[in-house]
């Protein structure tokens, strides 16, 4: 009796500070942003309630919300697909135990450790016309040295996506490696004895088993890229023109440069809702595919699931 009572008290006291912190710095801001999106606010005087005017303004004529959203989605998709494809490949190689796996693992995670602003500034220099690394290399193979990658409105978004892939692939690789290592060797051995080809083993065993993890990592990458402010700001500040102006950059501009906090909040709300929808859909997918993955591979133990990230697990 006393013991359970004590434990309850422990729970309340122990969890209280963290809960209070999350309430103050996550829950309150979310509610506040929704409220601010319905106001006109210059950041100094009191916010003035104006209903849905902000939303009508940003979606209507002259507002560029949809262009920004589309741009964000394009940045996010290109970057996420790149990260997933390369990350899966690298993880598969590591889990196959290629020689020097430890070394490769450490090296491939390196870009994730370098501060994003450093990577941003480095790659801006690398993509400079004439003097940058990219054109230096292109020049060596005779493809011309003068292309101004980041000044080209058609290329800039892809260049920044590429740098995102460079940064984040190591993260995806590490998590997928955890899931792949959770697949017992016996299954591969049994499949091999049954005469399964290498390709067959990868597609029929590895991929189904790690599919929930793949989906989780993809979801995380989408969330990360929707937050890709630092990289874009370090590289292009949204330019040239608005060609790399993704949502968080636009929100920052509206609020902290133009002093238009209401409209900025409205944009943030749209972004948040969009991300929430994606999360819900993908979480459903993770849940269903973790079921089918288990059925197809014949096993899916807690251990393997654990490395599918508590994040993904918790949402499901």
């Amino acid at each position: 009796m006393l013991r359970t009572h004590l434990r309850r008290r422990l729970l309340v006291i122990g969890a209280l500070p963290a809960v209070a912190g999350i309430a103050l710095l996550v829950a309150y801001p979310v509610v506040r942003t929704v409220y601010l999106s319905l106001t006109s606010w210059d950041g100094a005087s009191a916010p003035k309630f104006i209903g849905t005017t902000n939303f009508r303004d940003i979606t209507g004529q002259g507002g560029d919300l949809w262009a920004t959203v589309l741009r964000t989605i394009r940045f996010s998709l290109v970057a996420t697909i790149g990260v997933m494809v390369i990350g899966t490949l690298l993880a598969a190689a590591l889990s196959a135990g290629i020689p020097g796996a430890r070394f490769f693992r450490v090296v491939w995670f390196l870009p994730m450790v370098v501060p994003v602003s450093v990577s941003g500034v480095y790659w801006v220099n690398a993509f400079q016309p004439t003097t940058g690394l990219s054109n230096y290399l292109l020049g060596k193979v005779g493809l011309g040295t003068t292309h101004a990658w980041l000044a080209d409105p058609h290329a800039a978004l892809y260049v920044t996506s590429f740098v995102w892939v460079w940064i984040s692939t190591g993260f995806a690789m590490i998590i997928m490696l955890g899931a792949m290592n959770g697949v017992p060797v016996e299954i591969y051995e049994a499949a091999e004895m049954d005469g399964c080809s290498v390709l067959r083993r990868f597609f029929s065993i590895t991929l189904p088993v790690v599919r929930p993890t793949l989906a989780t990592v993809a979801l995380l990458e989408i969330i990360f890229t929707f937050n890709g402010f630092t990289l874009i700001w370090a590289m292009t500040q949204g330019g040239p023109g608005t060609s790399t102006q993704i949502l968080p950059v636009e929100v920052y501009r509206q609020a902290f440069i133009n002093g238009n906090y209401g409209a900025a909040s409205a944009q943030a709300v749209v972004g948040g809702v969009l991300l929430l929808l994606v999360s819900v859909v993908m979480t459903r997918f993770i849940r269903s595919s973790s079921g089918s993955g288990r059925a197809r591979a014949g096993l899916f133990r807690r251990r393997a699931n654990r490395s599918a990230l508590a994040a993904g697990q918790g949402i499901t």
Binding site: N227, P248, V251, A264, L275
Partner: peptide, 27 residues
């Protein structure tokens, strides 16, 4: 069992920083 609070923390992770920055700046 997964404690309710753990789910709350996971949900807190999903909110992008862009939704939080303006009020945190105000605070």
């Amino acid at each position: 069992k997964t404690p309710l609070l753990l789910r709350v923390f996971v949900i807190a992770l999903v909110f992008p920083l862009v939704v939080l920055v303006i009020p945190i700046f105000g605070l």
